[in-house]
Write a protein that binds this DNA or RNA. Structure first.
Lengths: 137, 137
DNA sequence: CGTTGCCTTGACGTCGGCGTCAAGGGCTAC
DNA sequence: GTAGCCCTTGACGCCGACGTCAAGGCAACG
């Protein structure tokens, strides 16, 4: 099949496939006209790439999976290098999620504080938070 | 004070301050030589910007806070527009964290599956997962 | 007088993953 | 032939938040 068909089958664009080829990730055979030619194995390689990219993997991080498939393994993650990428990505995700949760709690605290201050500054505003015992909460 | 000193006090660079000025976020007065001049209020504005950026806010998202301070309010988040940004950011963070947790569990599942497959493919390897009843899990 | 050291503006570079032209070749259908 | 569609390569655009370099100015110090 040609590049347009492969792109359509993977739900992506020809530009993307040419880009992958330029990165050495998905090389193509050529027909006598110079047109790129792909087969079913390339469909699988491309699906592997797109799946990982959908998970947020960098293009470079998909390389071990693609090379694993090309080496004849049944799955892209049948190789140690792929497992390493999985583990590294898990660690990255954990770090990032933790960081974001920290930020989230900081922002939530700031919002709560600012909302309290806003209420306090509106004299005839909403009901006081707590009449006895200080500033409420 | 001049740009170098302000940058140093905020732990950033002169390039950054000029960039903020180019965005209309932190305009500067000029001395007779044409050099930028800042005062203590600018220090506070800049600290507000940097704090929010450390939290992952876009530069544009800091604008309401800065304008709030310049309007004379005691805090950058003493204005409704700032509170809106807080709320929007909280929603963004929740969405992102949820998404990342989903990805994390998918990656973890893939890793577990791939590790099992790897063990199974090593004949004299670690103990079989489950002798009776099929492929084990 | 020269050398630091701060400042100025302008403009190009970075990073990733493509999008979007532009100019041209080739094949098929009508 | 010519219209339409697919393909080719090449090259610039984009996004944000600056980094980095170039060329020059002004002040103070020795």
């Amino acid at each position: 099949m040609r590049i347009g068909e492969l792109a359509a089958r993977a739900g992506t664009t020809t530009r993307t496939l040419r880009y992958y080829e330029s990165r050495g990730l998905l090389p193509a055979r050529r027909d006598p006209n110079g047109h790129r030619t792909y087969d079913e194995r390339d469909v699988k390689l491309l699906e592997q790439i797109r799946t990982l990219r959908d998970f947020g993997f960098d293009l470079e991080e998909t390389r071990p999976f693609v090379e694993c498939l090309r080496a004849g393994h049944p799955e892209g993650d049948s190789c140690p290098a792929s497992l390493m990428v999985y583990r590294r990505k898990l660690a990255e995700l954990d770090a990032l999620i933790g960081e974001l949760q920290g930020v989230r709690s900081m922002v939530a605290a700031q919002l709560a504080r600012a909302e309290l201050a806003a209420d306090a500054s509106v004299p005839g505003g909403p009901e006081p938070v707590c009449e006895l015992g200080g500033r409420g909460l």
